[in-house]
Design a binder for these strands. Structure first.
Lengths: 227, 227
DNA sequence: AGATTGTTCTTCGTATACACTTTGTCCGGA
DNA sequence: TCCGGACAAAGTGTATACGAAGAACAATCT
């Protein structure tokens, strides 16, 4: 796995710390590093093929984002999302993403709606092909796109971060809930296209309630390392 | 100013990077570093009396929090909150802090309410003394306390960060709006004590609307550096 | 066994070095 | 005068090494 990441990094020209941060995030979200797992600076530096400095800077940001926990003088461990915090996350998402849906409905241009519909089509197709990874990816893109259309950068960046965490929890539980979700997405995009803010909020709320229920069900079994 | 911060740092035992981050945040919020101002690593290192490494780590987090802007190979500058983003911030706060008020109403213990009332009393007294700095401080403490009582760590940390930014904008404009605010605060605490979530939400909303109006009025004149 | 001591691992911070960008300055030529 | 390019300065990005201090764990002694 060290080599995978090293290759992925080599091709780009961004500051190493950003590449490391991105790689670290995805490694955690994808479950390559499991909750509770210890992340020593040396090990990460070796995994990513860089020196310790960029690793340290990436770790601080990852801590601020809630992906790792840093214990002073003891180092970093991958954070452990507990089922308590899942409910909390969804409570916040409910407020934020319903707002995003409303704003999107109020501000979406024809081009915006077309882009959403395109994602919807691709999603339907990928679902038929049983390509779950692609479905999950399109799912993310749709949500992120709606946030972007809302035109509120604060909302967008906060909800995005929250969304990443939700994804993380889902991945760990290996739940996909793919077919169910798309019908709700269509409702949501329809509502956004209509320009009716209230309706868009309701659609987003329905979607989130379903997702929340799925997440909890998913979390029942427990996940991650018992560290 | 370097000495003030150095002294403030010396007494504690936290990692230097955290102390630097805290000092940097408050320096920016208090207007010691103005929007658009360039923050070279060497300069910060000297200001805080530390080496470049802790400074760099603090800067990355400050960037993630939106206080500074880092341009690759060009360094960091203090971010410039524009009047557009003020409206966006309040739109998000409205969703978040009303939720916080509701949760606080539903979960507050008698001790929680007593703590809020104590802050209210101190606030009234400070207002009579015309001690505006203290009033602003108590204002923050009240809001932060409500977030804490909500018991939702995600909500708390996100709203707290947002609140810091609002404070920042206010400070830059030197607005205080002190007397007005406390009547609303009393309404809010009364609502929380009543345990009525809907009522608490309404009170929080009223408070935020007033604060938002004041912030906009404050922003009219413009603030910060034109960089 | 239980307490104490040592050893080892690791983080934390400092210092230093250097390549590479960006920026600003200066100078000569049209 | 104005333009453009050479040149120098400043500052970031990254690596590396070192010492101090803390935490964890094992070995030792009572």
């Amino acid at each position: 796995m060290a080599d995978d990441l090293r290759d992925k990094l080599g091709t780009q020209h961004l500051p190493l710390r950003d590449q490391v941060l991105a790689a670290l995030r995805t490694a955690i979200i994808d479950g390559n590093y499991l909750p509770g797992e210890r992340l020593t600076e040396d090990r990460l530096a070796e995994d990513f093929g860089v020196s310790r400095n960029p690793v340290r800077e990436a770790l601080r940001v990852a801590e601020a984002e809630g992906f790792v926990l840093i214990l002073p003088r003891r180092g970093a461990v991958v954070a452990s999302p507990s089922s308590g915090t899942i409910a909390d996350m969804f409570a916040v998402r409910e407020r934020l993403e319903t707002l995003a849906a409303r704003l999107a409905a109020e501000r979406a241009t024809a081009a915006d709606v077309a882009a959403l519909r395109a994602l919807l089509d691709q999603g339907r197709e990928a679902t038929q092909r049983q390509d779950l990874a692609r479905v999950a990816e399109l799912n993310s893109m749709l949500h992120l796109r709606i946030l972007q259309i809302s035109g509120n950068p604060w909302l967008s960046s906060i909800a995005k971060s929250l969304y990443l965490h939700v994804q993380w929890v889902f991945r760990l539980g290996a739940a996909e809930r793919a077919p169910h979700s798309w019908a709700e997405h269509i409702q949501l995009v329809d509502a956004i296209e209509s320009g009716d803010g209230d309706r868009a909020e309701r659609a987003a709320l329905a979607h989130l309630d379903a997702a929340s229920a799925a997440a909890h069900e998913n979390a029942e079994g427990g996940y991650g390392v018992t560290a």
